[in-house]
Design a protein around this nucleic acid. Sequence first.
DNA 1: GTCTATATGAGGATAGAC
DNA 2: GTCTATCCTCATATAGAC
Lengths: 219, 219
Amino acid sequence: MGIKERRDREKKEHRQRILDEALQIITKEGFAALSMRKLAEKIEYSAASIYLHFRNRDEIARELSEVGYGQLFEFLTAAAQEKDAVKRLRAVGEAYVSFGLKHPEIYRLIFMSDAAYIEAVFIENNEDSAANKSYRILLGIAEDLKRSGHYRGKAASSEVADMIWTTWHGIISLKLTCTNFPMTPVETLVALMGKTIVEGLGAKRLPVSGRTPSVAKKR
Amino acid sequence: MGIKERRDREKKEHRQRILDEALQIITKEGFAALSMRKLAEKIEYSAASIYLHFRNRDEIARELSEVGYGQLFEFLTAAAQEKDAVKRLRAVGEAYVSFGLKHPEIYRLIFMSDAAYIEAVFIENNEDSAANKSYRILLGIAEDLKRSGHYRGKAASSEVADMIWTTWHGIISLKLTCTNFPMTPVETLVALMGKTIVEGLGAKRLPVSGRTPSVAKKR
DNA sequence: GTCTATATGAGGATAGAC
DNA sequence: GTCTATCCTCATATAGAC
């Protein structure tokens, strides 16, 4: 049965080669630039042969998205070793943003294009998907912030985690769409954001929504 | 010279009609669905005739972006009447997010696709562009927060404004890409975010970056 | 079984007839 | 000024060669 094994192995390698080249194209030129023809040229096969390995262009995109979530997870994991929740919040935030800056087209693909990719990963996939594991890093930070007395509000940890996530996503996605705006450097934004959120969550006085805090009275 | 005037007027009207139909297509089906052929069918002219009014599809996109910035500006202006900076922050934030939810495809076009559109507006255009005026609403809030003693940090108003903007953008853009995630409802996120930022900016104790605040010591 | 060649139909853009 | 005809690029599908 060695022949079948070799054939299977070769087919798998061929498939992987297609994915590798596709990733290169996306990384360099963005997802929109990924065409079956261009990809076929790169792998030195006809376009039709790609369809023997992938149902369509979308299936390639979905697989590459998962690669992207994996890369992001590695970035985050490396930064999530810090014990202290506040330090970890800052480290992971910086890692998240630096991933986006380093792999802008991948970030666009996984978080700024079709909702189908990310939803497939979060909803259908198992708990061990890279995207879910990344989210749990974030959730862990929110829980630790609460545990260590860094926040006093009533918000659930998942809400705090979502707030932090949207924050980082906001910075990187706006930067990718508009390289010159906001003019504040990304690093400054990450630092200011992190500090403001930590202090906001842990603030002792919680002014009732809508009322002006006493400090402002002197106006 | 009345004939020339009528001709000019008719041409202008025709151009406007193209834009109107294009806006409808984008609003309903998204920018990707805007094809010259489909547009031609709507206006009941040949596709080639569109090129007499617009250099290419991109030029239509750019003009529609400006319409979009104008619509956003109107949303924000209506919410920016409130005198109190904190209340205004919340009102404008809600308006920003509700614009994004109400006109998702327009939002995608102006803030989530090509950097060229937004950069053209912010950089090349005059101070009176809708995008610049919108930004100044935000900047005004940041300045008023500072003036009324709501924040004590060293961050410049423009940095605070950018932080607030990225925050709102993060919420809406993540929601548009991933309708089921984050699971926290948009309204909850906006409220939590607004509260956390106001309290974070105004917090009395400013723990030195990297040190754990005293509350956490008990861990 | 795996590939090449080719067909189909959508789309952007343009030349040239009227 | 408007149209038809056309060219190019693209995703996708399939027939049939090997």
